[in-house]
């Protein structure tokens, strides 16, 4: 040893990095990824591959050739965005539509704001919503999963779509449910139509528990969303069960679990404090139910998260940790 390193304290660092955190998120998403591939087959695999590859490639090209900076793809955040985007579109989506979604998610929602950490909106959700308003037919064309590597796919609406459609025809909710033969067990174990990530609630919840155990995220935002969705729909359902869907239905359908576990908990676009997170989650939960009940779209999670993303700076200002020894 010839020279001593001299630098200010602390001299050690926790074994955690942006890359390790993002890798944990990818691991947490694996059960859902595997489920969706099992249910939808190679088409879903293709979507995942296109989505992840384009997100990473777009970030690489932008950082290296437009910003002329070292590439940031090593932090794995583009991979997370890619997987989330793939889980948010129907498996019948053409690859080029997925690519356009990735361009919007990474190039517009993330990089134009200054890259990871600077974006106001969750890139994957921004990409999904962009596709939803740009390609409404593609994005609302669902085919129900049929056993392994679904050969005889049956086209049909998602439960939420079916309810919306039924209500437009003035059919009461219980009758719609009965006519479609929906059961909550099916919803939990993935047997109903929806985008890939919406199909298996259990796989998503397993990933969420993994993230909490690894202390990558705190459960408060997610729990707050669940509780608010349950309470809000309990009130409406209690008042008029013929017009409004119930709490369990709202919890298990659509992208609620995916959104609540993986998108609303995105560090960059969610509040930092526990109570800020609870408010943020309550806002998402309430808006989701309102959009589902009264909005034009059957599904509201994406919009609810996007809207609440915009409130994050405000929430961060309002909920500050109490300082030691100060009033």
């Amino acid at each position: 040893m010839d020279k001593l390193t001299v630098s200010p304290s602390p001299h050690i660092h926790a074994k955690v990095s942006t890359r390790s955190l993002m890798t944990d998120v990818v691991i947490a998403l694996l059960p859902a990824v595997i489920c969706s591939v099992v249910f939808y087959g190679w088409k879903e695999l293709l979507i995942l591959a296109v989505s992840v590859a384009s997100c990473v490639l777009i970030e690489y090209v932008i950082t290296r050739y437009m910003l002329k900076k070292p590439s940031t793809v090593g932090d794995m955040s583009a991979v997370v965005t890619g997987i989330l985007l793939a889980l948010n579109v129907p498996y019948t989506t053409p690859w080029w539509v997925v690519f356009i979604g990735a361009v919007f998610a990474v190039a517009v929602a993330k990089m134009t704001f200054g890259g990871l950490g600077q974006n106001i909106f969750n890139p994957a959700i921004a990409g999904r919503v962009f596709l939803l308003v740009s390609f409404p037919t593609v994005m609302t064309h669902w085919e129900q999963p049929q056993a392994l590597f679904g050969v005889d796919a049956v086209t049909g609406p998602t439960p939420l779509g079916a309810i919306k459609e039924g209500l437009l025809n003035k059919v009461p909710v219980p009758d719609i449910m009965a006519s479609k033969g929906y059961s909550y067990a099916d919803m939990l174990f993935a047997n109903l139509g929806g985008s890939a990530g919406e199909v298996c609630a259990l796989a998503l919840l397993a990933g969420f528990i993994y993230l909490c155990c690894r202390r990558v995220i705190k459960p408060w935002i997610t729990l707050s969303i669940f509780v608010t969705v349950a309470l809000t729909s309990l009130i409406f359902w209690g008042i008029n069960p013929a017009r409004f869907t119930g709490p369990l239905f709202n919890l298990l359908t659509g992208g609620l679990i995916l959104g609540a576990c993986f998108m609303a908990t995105d560090y960059v676009t969610s509040p930092m404090s526990t109570w800020g997170g609870v408010i943020f989650g309550a806002g998402i939960g309430f808006l989701t139910v309102m959009i589902r009940y009264f909005g034009a779209y059957p599904e509201g999670v994406s919009f609810a998260i996007l809207i609440m993303n915009a409130f994050v700076p405000l929430i961060n200002m309002g909920f500050k940790q109490k300082k030691f020894g100060r009033a």
């Binding site: 955690v16 942006t18 940031t72 932090d75 955040s77 990871l116 950490g117 600077q118 560090y267 960059v268």
Partner: peptide
């Protein structure tokens, strides 16, 4: 150092 990801740690 890389960009702050606002994780709040």
């Amino acid at each position: 150092p890389s960009a702050c990801i606002r994780c709040g740690r």
